[in-house]
Amino acid sequence: MIYKKDANFPYPILTNTSNAYNNSRFHLTVGLDEIGNNYCFEPKYDISSDFIKSQIENKKAGLILVVQNKDTKFYEIDDVERVVRIPKERISIKDRTVIQLLIKAKQDISFSDNGDLNGFYEHFKESIEVPKNSILGFSNIITLNVIKKPSELFEKKIDPSLKGPFEIELSSETIILKFKNEDYQFVDIPNNRDLNNAYIREGLSRAVINFVINNGEDNVVDIDSIELPENELDIKLYNLMKSRNVKEVSLENIDEVVNTIGNNIIEKFTNAVRGLYNGN
């Protein structure tokens, strides 16, 4: 299974967000290549705990690559090669693929010599013994996905049957901007593309609200901890937020997030209006 940062364990776990370890870090990056009939995954990781690293080096613990596609598969990382080869017929990276690295105990492990734990555990770490096959840590989640037409976040349609001049519709893949007629798109005015940013901003705001409803708990989404969304439009928004370093989105900060991911759309709209006023 894929673990999120809010997973609970009865003993200290090494993650990127754990409070159990001092300077807790378990960061994963993954190289992907195609060689013959195989996909080759090359995980690279950064572990902050010397204690955990020593367990791996002494073969008391091992690294497991979890690849979640249509189902979930587990691959032990070879100490020498550190490359996981998966036949192409067993996986399709065109489907959403989620990857995580786990540290698993190969034998019972005592934490009595674990000097990397925070002070809370100092007086009773001698009594902590993690059983064989237990998880000692898990990394961040890497998502691989190939989306059809990923840049096409918006569609525009003319629909004379609209009751009003403009409507927004969210499909499973795009934000649809619907106009009663093309005049509302400023087609006969210079800089009409930037003038349409007012509509784009409204559509983006509606889509982000829907993203929060679909993926949040208590109307809050922690971008780094959620799994890749099911809905393709939500996937596009998720990737856009990740690329702009958005960490959290909620119904309270919709405007802030839209401004961050919107690539200065309001500024462009404002400049286009000023240009018309100045005769440009």
Rank of each mutant, 00 (worst) to 15 (best):
D188G: 13
A207L: 00
V66A: 11
F179Y: 11
N264L: 13
E81F: 14
I135S: 02
G275S: 06
Y21N: 00
G31M: 08
N145Y: 07
V208S: 01
N118K: 06
E155I: 12
F120N: 05
D159Q: 07
S205T: 12
N197Y: 08
K178C: 06
Y21E: 00
N69F: 08
E57S: 11
L233T: 14
E152K: 13
N37Y: 04
N263W: 07
M1A: 09
L240R: 14
V83S: 04
T270K: 10
N38Q: 00
S151T: 14
I265M: 13
L251T: 10
V83D: 04
E248N: 07
G36V: 07
V258T: 09
S250L: 04
S49Y: 03
S18H: 09
K88G: 03
S225D: 13
L162R: 08
G216E: 01
K178W: 04
E202T: 12
K106E: 00
I254L: 05
N259G: 04
L102Y: 10
S225I: 10
E152F: 15
S110K: 08
I109Y: 00
N192A: 09
P131Q: 06
V220T: 15
S24D: 10
I226D: 01
G119M: 06
R244L: 05
F51L: 00
T260K: 14
L276Y: 06
E129D: 06
D33K: 14
N271K: 09
S49I: 11
N133K: 12
D234R: 08
S250N: 02
L237H: 02
K247C: 07
E152D: 15
Y21D: 01
D183F: 09
S161G: 01
F186R: 07
Y45K: 08
P87Q: 06
K44G: 09
V220F: 00
L65S: 02
I213Q: 10
E227I: 13
D188V: 14
R274L: 15
K242E: 02
K53P: 01
E230M: 14
I254S: 05
E169C: 06
F124I: 10
N278R: 15
